[in-house]
Amino acid sequence: MNKPIKFQCVTDCSSICCGGATILTLKEIVKLFKFFPITLGFRKIQPFNAEHRVYLDDISIKYRGFYITGDFIGGNRLKTRCRLLKNSLCTIHNQLKPLQCRIIPFSVTFPEVLQDLVIVDKKGGAFRECKGFYADAPLIWDGQFIDKSLKENFDILKEYLMFQRDIVEKIFISLEGNSLFKKFIQTGDGFFEVPILPEFVDEICSITGILDRVEFLRAQKSLFVKELTFRGMKNSLFIDALNTIEQLRI
């Protein structure tokens, strides 16, 4: 039986869910590429049941028996705080705010009717210290979303994942010869993250509606430089991303 979920974000604990990296979608890049350095990440997902499996058929890549989600990643996942937080408050709002942030504490990798499983999992991990689940918080899910804005944003996010699946799969398959790709496939779980590959930049700009390729690349180069070093260490992925941009000779 589903357990109703009561939740309301408490802003002074934003560091719990507003980490250094934010999941973006292809359709959001056009309005967010000046805010975040963007990479591409892949993660395996194990279906919980038959209903979840059918749902994953729509949004994920199927490769050698695995279900794999491909997401554009905004920011530096090695950092603990999103670069757009100021005094624990988000500095972008309304239609600029990433859809993933708008559906907290839920996850689009599970269907609407199974979101209680998401919360159980997160409360045992990332949301262990979250203050938003309190007795008098608003009821936002009870077998389905009660909150209309959550429902709308969740459905849009799912639609965007379906929209980008083909090009994400094309990029993923192009990486088959990569040693990190092979390690990712051979291990049970894990996460595989790469820069946006040079040969796909023009296609991504075309699909997203970015009219000025040079502006996109220059903005990304500047952001990768700013985010390159954390706690005295350089992010090797961001070094690769900068090398990739250099190959395009902007």
Rank of each mutant, 00 (worst) to 15 (best):
Q186Y: 15
E203W: 00
T39G: 05
T229N: 06
L89G: 13
L242P: 03
C101T: 13
V30I: 00
Y63D: 10
I16Q: 08
E203H: 04
D189Y: 15
L32Q: 01
C9M: 08
E51G: 13
Q164S: 01
E176M: 15
F181Q: 07
I92M: 08
W141K: 04
C17P: 03
F127P: 06
D155R: 08
I185S: 03
L96D: 08
T109Q: 09
D166L: 15
G70H: 04
I146N: 02
K122P: 06
I185W: 13
Q164V: 14
V214M: 12
I171T: 01
R218K: 03
G125L: 07
K3C: 12
C90L: 09
I5H: 02
I104W: 14
S174F: 11
T187Y: 08
V120N: 00
K151G: 03
D57N: 15
L161S: 11
L139D: 05
K226P: 01
Y67L: 05
K234G: 06
K234D: 14
V201S: 00
G188K: 15
Y55E: 05
S179T: 03
D58N: 11
C17D: 09
N87M: 08
L175G: 01
D212H: 12
R218Q: 03
G132C: 08
K123R: 05
P37R: 05
F127L: 14
Y55G: 11
P195M: 08
G41H: 09
E152I: 07
R77C: 15
D166G: 05
E169A: 15
L139I: 00
N235M: 11
N243C: 07
C205M: 03
N2I: 03
D212Q: 00
L150T: 11
A219K: 06
I140M: 04
F172G: 06
F42E: 07
V10K: 14
F191K: 11
Q95D: 15
K123N: 08
K151M: 03
K183R: 10
I61V: 02
V118I: 09
S174A: 02
T80W: 11
T22Q: 07
R102E: 09
F216P: 01
G143H: 03
K131G: 06
R218S: 07
G41M: 13
K34D: 01
V113I: 13
F33L: 04
P4H: 09
K182W: 09
F110W: 01
I196D: 01
F145I: 00
F72N: 02
D155F: 10
R165Y: 08
P98W: 04
T244Q: 12
N76T: 13
N235V: 09
E246P: 03
A137L: 07
H52I: 13
T244C: 13
I103Q: 12
F35E: 00
K151T: 00
V30A: 05
T80A: 15
A135N: 13
I171S: 04
L157K: 12
V225N: 05
Q100G: 07
K131C: 10
F184H: 01
T22D: 05
F184R: 04
L197H: 05
K170D: 15
I171A: 07
F191Y: 12
P4S: 10
L139R: 04
K34I: 07
A21I: 05
F42W: 10
F7N: 11
E112H: 04
